[in-house]
Amino acid sequence: MKITVGISNKHAHLTQEQIEALFGKGYHLTFFRNIKQPDEFVSNEKIDVAGPKGILKDVRILGPAREKAQIEMTLTNARAIGVEAKIRVSAHVEGSSGVTLIGPAGQIELKEGVIAAVRHLHMTPDEARTLGLHEGQRVAVETSGERAVIFKNVIVRIDELFSLELHLDTDEANAAGLKNGDEVTLV
């Protein structure tokens, strides 16, 4: 089965309280563009993310606001700013590293929330039933081309709002020579 690839660059998910601390009281994220997952969008807003060794500039915030903050970055990004990015499923930030978030109206210390998202496969319950897969299952996908690889330990994520797509970060995609919209095969 062919599955479309979605490549995730560094980005932030923030609470409404954090958005207001960084952009001003009463501030709400503004729409920039849709992403394939229908319940989220890329906002116009960007922040800087500071660690002990450096700063990641212009990190986009994804909307809508969430209940818990999460800063997603590659392992390369994390090393560059001197933090550890634990490889985690989205929203599982307990015990992860913290950073300083810098916005136009202020800055905040995030005690935890830095992760490198585990490679994962989004799908609907119907697609999961058709494929015989269940939430949290680990599968493998194969790429093609000059730098073909098999990605193992891809976590299956199931939700009514999901659109079938393999999510990789830029480190993984670059290593396999992939770009957004390329296709991989479930093996």
Rank of each mutant, 00 (worst) to 15 (best):
P52S: 10
A105E: 14
E94I: 00
L75S: 05
Q107K: 15
V83W: 06
S96W: 02
E127Y: 01
R66D: 11
P64L: 09
L110M: 15
I47T: 01
G82F: 08
P52I: 10
V114D: 02
K68R: 13
L56P: 04
I61P: 12
D58A: 15
S96C: 06
R129V: 15
A85L: 01
P52M: 04
V89A: 12
I55V: 15
M73P: 03
A50R: 15
M123K: 07
T100Y: 14
D58R: 14
R79P: 01
E72Q: 09
V118T: 10
I81A: 03
M123T: 11
A91M: 11
A116P: 01
A116R: 07
N77Y: 02
M73I: 07
R66M: 05
V114E: 00
K111G: 04
Q107W: 13
K68G: 05
S97V: 05
V89P: 04
G63S: 06
M123P: 10
G63Y: 05
E109H: 12
L131A: 08
H122W: 06
A116D: 00
V93R: 02
G54T: 07
R60F: 09
R79K: 14
A116K: 00
A105R: 15
P104Q: 14
R60N: 07
M123E: 13
G54M: 11
P64V: 09
T74A: 04
S97M: 05
S97N: 07
R129E: 15
S97E: 14
L62F: 12
E127V: 04
T124S: 15
I81N: 13
P125F: 06
P125D: 09
I102C: 13
T74I: 03
P125N: 03
S96F: 05
I108F: 05
V59S: 09
G106I: 09
L75P: 00
N77G: 00
E45A: 06
R79Q: 14
T74M: 03
I87L: 08
I71K: 10
A128L: 04
A69Q: 08
D48V: 07
L56R: 09
